[in-house]
C-alpha cells in the first residue's frame, strides 16, 4: 500500500495539513511580538525550553518538513517521467490554476526561504543554547526577533517568500482534503476557509516583518 500513488498522495496531504497547523501555531506566537512583547517573550521561552516541544514536537516537525519536500520532489520526478515527449502547445491555464500547476516552484522557493529562516533563527538558537551555553534569559527573544528584520534585503526576501507561500497554500490546503477523500457538500465552504487562511496567514507574517522593520529598537 505504502508505495502506491494514492498512499503517497495521502501522505503528502497529511504532512501538508500538519505543516499548515504548525504555520497557524507559529503565526499565533509571532503576532504577539507586535501586540504584546512580554507574552511573546514568555511563549518563546516556553517553546525554546519545554522538553515536550524541544524533544518530541520539534523533531516531528523537522521530519514533517523533510518528508513533505522529499516526497514532493519524488512525485515531481515521477510525474515528469509519465510524459516523456512534451506537447508543442499546452494550454494548462484554460483548465487549472497557476498555483496548482506550479507547486514545485512555490515549494522550492519556500524551501530556500526555510534555509534562510533556519540560518536566521534556528541555528543561532542552537549555538546560543548548546554551543556557547549562555544562561537562559526569558526576556531576550523580542529584541532578537526585532533586530532580525533590520535589513531591508532580508525583509524583501521574507515578503517575496510569503507571497509564494500564499500561492502554495491556495492550492495545497484545500487539495489536501480532496486527497484524503473529503469531497462533499461542505467542500465549497471548506475551500473558502482554506483560501482565506492561505492569504491571511502569510499576509500576517508579512505584516509582522514590515512592522518590526519600520519599528526597530536600539541594540
Amino acid at each position: 500500500m505504502i508505495s502506491s500513488s494514492i498512499a503517497r498522495k495521502v501522505a503528502m496531504a497529511l504532512s501538508g495539513l500538519f505543516l499548515v497547523f504548525f504555520l497557524a501555531q507559529h503565526f499565533t506566537i509571532n503576532i504577539t511580538s507586535v501586540i504584546a512583547p512580554d507574552i511573546f517573550n514568555s511563549w518563546s521561552h516556553f517553546m525554546g525550553t519545554n522538553g515536550l516541544v524541544q524533544g518530541i514536537l520539534q523533531p516531528i516537525l523537522i521530519f514533517g518538513v523533510i518528508y513533505h519536500f522529499v516526497m514532493g520532489f519524488i512525485l515531481e520526478i515521477q510525474n515528469r517521467k509519465a510524459r516523456t515527449v512534451r506537447y508543442a502547445q499546452f494550454k494548462g491555464g484554460t483548465n487549472s490554476s497557476w498555483a496548482s500547476r506550479n507547486m514545485i516552484i512555490t515549494g522550492l522557493v519556500i524551501l530556500a526561504f526555510l534555509g534562510l529562516h533556519f540560518y536566521d533563527f534556528w541555528i543561532p538558537e542552537i549555538v546560543h543554547k548548546y554551543i556557547e551555553t549562555h544562561p537562559e534569559d526569558p526576556t531576550r527573544y523580542y529584541a532578537e526577533t526585532v533586530h532580525k528584520f533590520e535589513s531591508p534585503v532580508r525583509v524583501t526576501i521574507y515578503v517575496v517568500s510569503f507571497i509564494l507561500l500564499i500561492l502554495h497554500l491556495w492550492h495545497g490546503f484545500s487539495s489536501a482534503f480532496q486527497s484524503v477523500g473529503f469531497n462533499n457538500k461542505y467542500s465549497k465552504g471548506l475551500k473558502l476557509f482554506t483560501q482565506i487562511f492561505a492569504v491571511a496567514i502569510p499576509v500576517g507574517f508579512i505584516f509582522i516583518a514590515l512592522y518590526h522593520h519600520f519599528n526597530q529598537i536600539p541594540h
Binding site: S5, K9, L75, Q78, A82, R83, N95
Partner: peptide, 14 residues
C-alpha cells in the same frame, strides 16, 4: 506508468 494526481482539476474541466 501514469503520473500522480496533484488535484489541479484539469481532468474534470476537459
Amino acid at each position: 506508468g501514469f503520473g500522480n494526481c496533484t488535484n489541479t482539476g484539469a481532468c474534470e474541466v476537459e
